[in-house]
Design a protein around this nucleic acid. Structure first.
Length: 236
DNA sequence: GCGACAG
DNA sequence: ATCTTGTCGC
């Protein structure tokens, strides 16, 4: 199924589709060393169907920005906990297709396999694009965990029954932890290692933090003109 | 039925 | 997610 058709799905059909996609997830070690990493995010105005998607490319582990791509799209698929991918993936894919260079791994703002059906947005995007992905969420969606110690680097596993599906990581002292889980084509251990190497002095890892800054800038610069799509002035 | 609930 | 000023704590 094409992401452009997600709009037509009912919540029930979306769940059925997740059940099919979950069988395609491969949590294997990364093929090659990470040289380029990317972060993605979405932004939108409240009550608006217009969504601003963006992906930022950075050198790893320097975290130097080397490029980006954005896309302005629309969606009517509502935000439903557990079905986030159906609302955000279509726009993210548009930005993804505009990238001049594809990263060795992509970090998405949300869960990977730390999801009831193991199909968080990171796993979903990774499977349909056949790309290594990592989920880095600001809050928990699913899974049980013990609060990690209040010390940078402290972590504790997230469980579904007796299965480890992610880790709660204290990325910064006195800040709530972030939730890391592999999306596709990467292991949980590598996911944690990569994210740790992406941390600066902020709670959020650089790829996702920069993507967030980018999409908000694009939104503010574009939502002033009522069209929702790129506007060009004839002559000037 | 009640509480939880990525962005 | 977005709307928003000040304010508490390290």
């Amino acid at each position: 199924m094409e992401p452009a058709q997600y709009e037509q799905l009912t919540a029930e059909q979306a769940i059925t589709y997740q059940q099919e996609l979950r069988h395609q997830i491969k949590l294997e070690p990364l093929n090659k060393p990470v040289r380029i990493i990317a972060g993605s995010d979405i932004s939108f105005n409240k009550y608006s169907e217009v969504v601003y998607a963006g992906i930022v490319l950075l050198k790893y582990p320097e975290m130097e920005i080397i490029g980006h791509a954005t896309a302005i799209s629309r969606t009517t698929f509502p935000y439903i906990s557990g079905l986030l991918a159906f609302r955000e993936v279509p726009a993210l894919l548009e930005a993804w297709n505009k990238l001049e260079i594809k990263p060795d791994v992509l970090v998405l703002d949300g869960q990977g396999i730390a999801h009831r059906r193991r199909m968080g947005i990171a796993s979903h995007f990774g499977v349909i694009t056949n790309t290594p992905t990592i989920g880095s969420a600001k809050s928990r969606l699913f899974g049980r965990y013990e609060e990690p110690a209040n010390e940078p680097g402290s972590q504790s596993p997230m469980y579904d029954r007796d299965e480890v599906i992610g880790i709660a990581l204290r990325s910064k002292k006195n800040c709530n932890p972030i939730f890391i889980s592999p999306g596709h084509k990467v292991t949980l251990e590598q996911s944690v290692e990569v994210i740790k190497n992406c941390l600066k002095s902020y709670r959020i890892p650089e790829p996702t933090r920069q993507a967030h800054i980018l999409v908000n800038k694009v939104r503010v610069e574009n939502s002033s003109n009522n069209s929702g799509i790129q506007q060009f002035d004839l002559f000037s």
